[in-house]
């Protein structure tokens, strides 16, 4: 479709059917809104994801394509270009690859992490990246559709709505919503490292025990209800907490220094999680803030309380 050909026909149709909008403009508006939406969603990502500029370029480019697909859909339908619509649907399928791409990259980087993210965290990040492209597509589609149907002011309202909505859609639950973080006592029973009553590991060398007692930090993560307990039971969720804490506070874990590995273990009776870390910056308040803001992973989230049996069992 050349633009001049499209314009002529579109102008004719516009007169015939009362369509108030130039399609080029609707596609343009849709694309701009889509790319803007992707850009805003990408910026917030920095907290969780390495800030390499090439990754950002990749995602902006994909966001551009997603926005193009979304914005062209309505005009293609109006012109009854069903072949084009089919191709667009096929192109949308390609965005599944975004998840694979992120998963592969992060899994490979994982080998170089002393405190790994864990497969669940990686899957969560990969899913998020895929979903954000669909949000971009939806933004472009709505804005271009509104532009075609009601004019540029409706498109602007739609764009604003999606830009704000996408910020809300990005926010999931965090650990602070499902659990409370309180300070805990780090101590040894013989050679066994304990956080309150929770066994963490056996540390053989006395010098290491002294160092752990002097410089280590321990907290209890107390689930607020049975849903929280079931979610924290998931090992992937605990690994995500450990990774975030270790990357923000620093860790003294080193190659061959397994004694300093941060660990999170469960009190099997209460479901509380005892977390031990040997941080570079020993600061309980910071650690509590960090844990509170760790996202609850989609794959770890459990809701036994939404079933009757779960509610009865919780009594």
């Amino acid at each position: 479709m050349t633009s001049s050909g499209l314009n002529l026909e579109e102008k004719k149709r516009g007169r015939d059917e009362g369509i108030p909008m130039n399609y080029n403009l609707s596609i343009g508006l849709g694309m701009v809104a889509g790319v803007l939406a992707r850009l805003f969603m990408l910026r917030v990502d920095y907290r969780q994801y390495p800030t390499y500029p090439h990754g950002m370029v990749t995602h902006l480019a994909l966001g551009f394509i997603a926005a193009l697909i979304g914005s062209v859909l309505v005009p293609a339908l109006v012109f009854k270009q069903f072949a084009a619509v089919t191709f667009l649907a096929l192109a949308a399928q390609e965005f599944r690859q975004v998840r694979n791409m992120e998963r592969e990259t992060l899994s490979k980087l994982e080998e170089a992490e002393l405190v790994p993210r864990g497969l669940d965290y990686i899957e969560g990040i990969a899913k998020t990246f895929e979903a954000r492209n669909y949000l971009t597509m939806a933004t472009a589609l709505t804005v271009s559709g509104l532009a075609v149907a009601s004019g540029w002011w409706a498109a602007l309202v739609g764009a604003l709505f999606w830009l704000i909505a996408s910020q809300f859609l990005m926010k999931g639950k965090v650990v602070g919503d499902i659990a409370e973080v309180v300070p805990a006592e780090l101590h040894f029973q013989g050679s066994l490292l304990m956080v309150d009553k929770i066994f963490i590991m056996n540390v053989g060398l006395p010098e290491m025990r002294e160092k752990i007692l002097a410089e280590g930090l321990a907290v209890l993560i107390k689930p607020r209800d049975d849903n929280g307990r079931a979610t924290l039971h998931h090992v992937g969720q605990r690994q995500a907490i450990l990774h975030t804490a270790a990357s923000l506070l620093g860790t003294k874990r080193e190659i061959g220094e397994l004694e300093f590995t941060p660990l999170a273990r469960k009190n099997i009776d209460t479901g509380e999680i005892g977390l031990f870390i040997l941080p570079v910056e020993k600061d309980f308040d910071c650690l509590r803030e960090i844990i509170n803001r760790v996202p609850v992973l989609e794959s770890a989230s459990r809701k036994p309380l939404s079933t009757l049996a779960g509610r009865i069992a919780a009594d």
Partner: peptide, 8 residues
Amino acid sequence: KGMVHDLE
């Protein structure tokens, strides 16, 4: 590159 455990 292992960890020392104490059997007490």
